[in-house]
Amino acid sequence: MYNILICDDEKDIVSALEIYLHAEGYTTFAAYTGKQALEILKKEDIHLLLLDIMMPEMDGISALTSLRAYSNVPVILLTAKSEDTDKVLGLNIGADDYVTKPFNPVEVIARVRSQLRRYMQLGGGQAPAESSACTVGGITLDDRAKEVFADGEKINLTPTEYEILKLLMQSPGEVFSPKEIYRRVWKNAPYGAEGTVAVHIRHLREKIEINPAEPRYLKVVWAQGYKIEK
């Protein structure tokens, strides 16, 4: 199976995570400072890194910066900071995902699985060559088979949800207002009925996102509409 390195200065957190990951069948390595993490990364064949930001000796941000100079191993940040700016900083310097403390262990496992699937199965971030499928981030929509995969896992969608997702994925990054979505999906004039769009979007989000409250792909642009993150 896969080797996962857990790096946090809090030993109890590391051992708790080890217990969960062992249960899922992963092999784990523990590091308590950024320096230790980098040493282990050099010696062992690590497939994923769970990295805390606030640590003594060398913090997560500088460890990640030096790691990214030679490796593109998936990194999930564990952070106590819930500030948007901190998240953006983490993603910008090369983290693949982040979990805010105090985290739900189930969510961490789900994110670990999702990152590993993408990294290992899709070949380290290389784009898939399937022509009939459309892929944005970890979401793949196969229009011929009418199938949707989130991080390689098949998702069951209702026809309406499928149409909404297809519409949004056709132009990633573009913000669609509820009225526009209603008109394009229901093919009807939206006389006050567009309120249902929001409900469908939420259901869709619950299906394709690991944490629907902090969506990675299907984002809410408040007071404007919805979009698929590029």
């Binding site: 109890d12 708790a16 403390k101 105090p102 985290f103």
Partner: peptide, 21 residues
Amino acid sequence: VSHDIKTPLTSIVNYVDLIKK
């Protein structure tokens, strides 16, 4: 302070879950 509280809280959440398991 909230940052400092969050770390032990993480352990509590995790270990309660482990006990449940």
